[in-house]
Write a protein that binds this DNA or RNA. Structure first.
Length: 431
RNA sequence: GGAAGCGUGGCAGAGUGGACGAAUGCGCCGCACUUGAAAUGCGGUAGGUCAGAAAUGGCCUCGGAGGUUCGAAUCCUCCCGCUUCCGCCA
């Protein structure tokens, strides 16, 4: 949620900011109107309560009784106003940074840079499903019988490769020397704290989900829900990593706090019927390595640069061609102030497809989560939060299979993963 | 799933109807003493919200939601969480 005082003091720039994000600028005026009423009534309520206390202490019981009834009415109105106020407030997205490209949809995203050579095959390259089925490492047919559409089995060396990737990333991101090297590129004194590995819960209660700004009206259809327990399945490890410090006040010297989490992610993919139905690009369940970090406000932007550097390092070490995209205002996530995506080259589609995202949420999430920092000057302020993909396993496996395929129909194993798998090539028989 | 107990500030822990947003200890911050430190002494130290330029003041919050009462951390109801024991189970 946005800072209330920001809306009160600078309604015009809030209107402009949220309009760029395809939200209705009239939300600001609706909010201000309700807020005005709420404040007036709050004052009245406070005064009456003070009066009632005094009457009680003076043992003027009858008068206090009468006042109590009036207060009750005011309180009900106040609660109603507060509910409406919160509803409006939750619909107002975070404001984009000034240097984020203004645009309506993904067509206006800006490519910042491109890395790697697009592979040129002197044969007709196959797609990941043709290869996956031939090598017996992907099975969607049985999955659709057993569960339904948009599920898959990863088998054989591909299953092993998932854990290879997890081990590779976890060992790298917990390595002080590696983190130091990346941090130094941001600036000489940039914090070089390694990531803390985490395996988080994959279920979350609605209260926390709401405080993460991930269960707002537009998002509910996307979530799997378990009615007996009243719990949701997470759509990303972010959903349970982000609340790790809710209601906490963290001492300044403890920041930044960085987590690398591994979990399954569950998505209903409502509204994407017919889109990417082929293969394992868009499925209901996939595993993902996620980065989450909590920083001082003034360092959050560099933290995102730092995270993107890590994402790029990982991609370059796998030698996968990609491009870095600055997502435009209209295509960004609601809580984001700046979103950077990485799109990886998919030979079978002859284009780049989104595999990574990096969200800088500033204090938009921490405000509801009440995750704060106690500064050395003893002030308390909200921390800033960053969240990003290290690897979405399914999609990165597609990229590896398709980019590393050979004319024989085998798949070479990227060099950095070879030690973890113990083989250099996935072929029929060792699949 | 059954039984019992428990949820109070950064932590530990008192408080069973008004004097309690809350004793005391620890921790933390400031000051004094000291060449410096330790020890000691004195003072300060929850969050949110509204008004205010500020100083300051009002209101709300003792797991959550209701209720009783002029008045609730304290009494009642329901819910949630934690701990221990039993059952089941990876």
């Amino acid at each position: 949620m946005l800072d209330i005082n920001l809306i009160r003091k600078y309604p015009e720039s809030v209107r402009r900011g949220i309009a760029a994000k395809n939200a209705d600028p009239a939300l600001v005026d609706k909010f201000l109107e309700v807020d005005r009423k709420w404040r007036a009534l709050t004052q009245k309520f406070d005064e009456m309560r003070a009066e009632q206390k005094k009457l009680g202490e003076a043992k003027r019981v009858e008068e206090a009784k009468k006042l109590k009834e009036e207060i009750k009415k005011i309180e009900n109105n106040l609660n109603e106003l507060e509910k409406i106020r919160t509803e409006i407030l939750y619909q107002i997205p975070n404001l984009p940074f000034k240097d984020v490209p203004i645009g309506k949809d993904e067509n206006e995203n800006q490519v910042i840079r491109t890395w790697g050579e697009i592979p040129k095959f002197n044969f007709k390259p196959k797609d990941h499903m043709e290869l996956g089925e031939a090598l017996d490492i992907i099975d969607t047919k049985t999955a659709s019988k057993v569960v339904g559409s948009r599920f898959n089995y990863l088998k054989g060396q591909l299953a092993i490769m998932e854990f290879a990737i997890v081990q590779y990333v976890f060992s790298l991101l917990t390595d002080k020397n590696f983190i130091k090297k990346v941090a130094e590129k941001i600036s000489p004194d940039f914090p070089d704290k390694p990531f803390i590995p985490v395996i988080p819960p994959v279920m979350i209660n609605p209260e926390t989900f709401t405080r993460m700004a991930r269960l707002d009206p537009g998002q509910q259809d996307e979530r799997f829900y378990l009615p007996k327990e009243g719990l949701y399945l997470v759509g990303s490890a972010e959903h349970t990593l982000g609340p790790l410090h809710m209601d906490e006040i963290i001492p300044e010297n403890k920041l930044p706090i960085r987590y690398v989490g591994f979990s399954s992610a569950f998505r209903r993919e409502a509204g994407s019927y017919g889109k990417d139905v082929y293969g394992i690009l868009r499925v209901h369940q996939f595993d993902k390595i996620e980065l989450e970090s909590f920083t001082l406000p003034e360092l959050s932007r560099s933290e995102q640069d730092f995270i993107v550097s890590i994402q790029e390092y990982l991609m370059q070490s796998l030698k996968l061609p990609y491009r870095v995209v600055s997502v435009c205002t209209g295509d960004m996530g609601g809580p984001d102030a700046r979103q950077i995506d990485i799109e990886t080259w998919m030979p079978s589609q002859n284009k780049y497809r989104e595999t990574h995202t990096s969200d800088l949420m500033t204090d938009y999430q921490s405000r509801r989560l009440k995750t704060r920092v106690k500064r050395n000057n003893s002030n308390t302020e909200l921390v800033h939060m960053n969240d990003a993909t290290a690897f979405a396993i399914g999609r990165i496996l597609i990229a590896i299979i398709e980019n590393y395929q050979t004319e024989k129909g085998t798949v070479l194993v990227p060099k950095v993963l070879q030690n973890y798998l113990g083989i250099k090539e996935i072929k029929i028989g060792n699949g």
